[in-house]
């Protein structure tokens, strides 16, 4: 506790005169996209994702077409809640992982995936190919709206995902598929 108390005492002595917490009312007046689905699709594609507009009924057929019969596929679409019995090893050789996003952000093409949508937090990262289903009506305009729409602290962890994993660490050359998935598809379903 000595370190804690000393640090806090030092901060108290050092900190500048109090400045007010800014009013964030301005963010509600920021530009709004007319067509959220179109802007989301553009942003997600910029981030390297594939985006398809379909219906709820079209999801299964697409998922079937995205993996070969001998490949390992894990789908969270028919599962509720977190399953603590799952281990990372269960997902280590997954070819395709399918889950459903809570909301999408038009501005960034990102989808919010809290732990309960993933079963195991490694699932999203160990699979080679990821499909995220998202209802078109669950797309919000920008990052401000996104944080207003979710409770970030509701679950153990959660992640906004925009596109497949990537790196530009070699000569700033973009390479898709760093540690996580090499491909990511967002299925925007009506409803």
């Amino acid at each position: 506790m000595r370190a804690r108390d000393e640090m806090l005492t030092a901060v108290r002595a050092a900190k500048p005169a109090a400045l007010p917490r800014p009013d964030l009312a301005a963010v509600s007046r920021f530009a709004r996209a007319e067509n959220l689905v179109a802007v989301f699709a553009e942003s997600a594609r910029l981030a390297g994702a594939s985006v398809l507009l379909t219906t709820r009924g079209g999801v299964d057929a697409f998922v079937d077409s995205a993996s070969k019969p001998n490949e390992r596929r894990v789908s969270m679409l028919d599962v509720d809640g977190v399953h603590h019995d799952a281990t990372a090893d269960d997902f280590a050789n997954t070819d395709l992982f399918v889950c459903e996003g809570v909301i999408g952000v038009a501005e960034t093409g990102a989808v919010w995936l809290p732990l309960s949508r993933l079963r195991h937090r490694a699932a999203l990262f160990l699979a080679t190919n990821v499909i995220i289903v998202l209802e078109q009506s669950r797309i919000v305009n920008n990052v401000h709206d996104a944080y207003a729409a979710i409770d970030v602290a509701e679950e153990e962890c959660g992640v906004f995902v925009a596109g497949p994993s990537k790196t530009a660490d070699i000569e700033q050359m973009l390479v898709i598929g760093a540690h996580g998935p090499k491909a990511l598809t967002v299925l925007l379903v009506e409803g």
């Binding site: 942003s43 910029l46 981030a47 390297g48 603590h84 952000v105 501005e107 960034t108 093409g109 990102a110 732990l115 937090r121 990052v143 970030v152 602290a153 679950e155 153990e156 962890c157 959660g158 992640v159 906004f160 995902v161 925009a162 596109g163 497949p164 994993s165 990537k166 996580g180």
Partner: peptide, 16 residues
């Protein structure tokens, strides 16, 4: 980029 690929939030340890 408009956002990084992953924006990860950790609030609580998962079980174990």
């Amino acid at each position: 980029q408009r956002a990084t690929v992953y924006t990860t939030h950790v609030h609580r340890p998962v079980r174990g």
